[in-house]
Design a protein around this nucleic acid. Sequence first.
DNA 1: CGGAGATGTTAGTCATTATTAACGTTACCG
DNA 2: CGGTAACGTTAATAATGACTAACATCTCCG
Lengths: 181, 181
Amino acid sequence: MEILDAAAELFAARGFHGVSIEDIGGAVGTSGPALYRHFSGKEALLAEMLLDISERLHTSATSRVTEAPDAEHALDALLTGQIEFALSHPALIIVHDRELGNVPEPARRRIRRLQRLYVEEWVTVLSELYPDCPPPRLRAATHAIFGLLNSTPHSAGELDPAAMAELLRGMARAALADAQS
Amino acid sequence: MEILDAAAELFAARGFHGVSIEDIGGAVGTSGPALYRHFSGKEALLAEMLLDISERLHTSATSRVTEAPDAEHALDALLTGQIEFALSHPALIIVHDRELGNVPEPARRRIRRLQRLYVEEWVTVLSELYPDCPPPRLRAATHAIFGLLNSTPHSAGELDPAAMAELLRGMARAALADAQS
DNA sequence: CGGAGATGTTAGTCATTATTAACGTTACCG
DNA sequence: CGGTAACGTTAATAATGACTAACATCTCCG
């Protein structure tokens, strides 16, 4: 939805509390309280946004993994998915890992759950690939890889997207291969 | 200073606009407006905090690099410094790369400058190590490495600090070696 | 002693802002 | 038509929060 896209850009730039309902309304051409026809409140808007993001990441991951012929290809597919998402929706990436704390409790739990499932998708594939590496280490490595891949908003403009994708994929691959040892 | 430390924790947890002057005062045992005896305002407090962080990172980096016998050791020293900092001051790391947008203009420029110098310190060392790799690619790789190393707040508790440091160092080394190609 | 300076306190002030109220308008459907 | 639902508008309302004012303390040094 247009409202969620505009809100995501604003939240990414100034943070949840740094953006007013008026700001969001203004960004979509309406003024302020019109948004209450679509969302029950500012927090609900954020909740729906984060829920949507974590759902997209998670379902894309599971479908890619189940379609992959082996763990090697599954990892490649996971990398592709995350890199694609990070490069094409930098604002969503930023909001996704900054603003969970502002989501009220009922929705917060569901988002955390999806995030956890997404991480476990990675850990499962990595466990198959590197069976000697203990899961906690793989989990930490996975978070590190997310940090690496999600760095893309910070280095905007240095490289064109294709080169950036290639660079990130290579670095992530190498880092994971090392993490196993 | 105690005030800055408390404010850093709060800013990291709830974001600049999500923390009130009262909150910060409460966290250090005084109440609210007492802070104006030490800072001219909320933004000035944030500015001093970010300035201090970027100064520490930058000066530590230059001193480590100039003391290193060669580029290989210099890179090791840079990795050590960043990992140490990220592991021991997770809140500062978070604030440092989230809240620059809330610093008012005079100070903002100085902070950006220090951050840029810090990045260039890395790029210079990497250029010496991988002379065939174009600087923009090295710059993007450097940002990616920061993302990887700064992931530590997200995977708190998975591994003990020593194991975490070792893991991150290995992954970063491997990722950088790959980035050159 | 006495007064200056550093540091705290509580009670305003004033702006911002989330949310609700009250009130159109348009489009579609019986 | 007529009326209902979807969507917008411009006022309140009410809370929060940054910052200032006015007023203690306390310490330290002459």
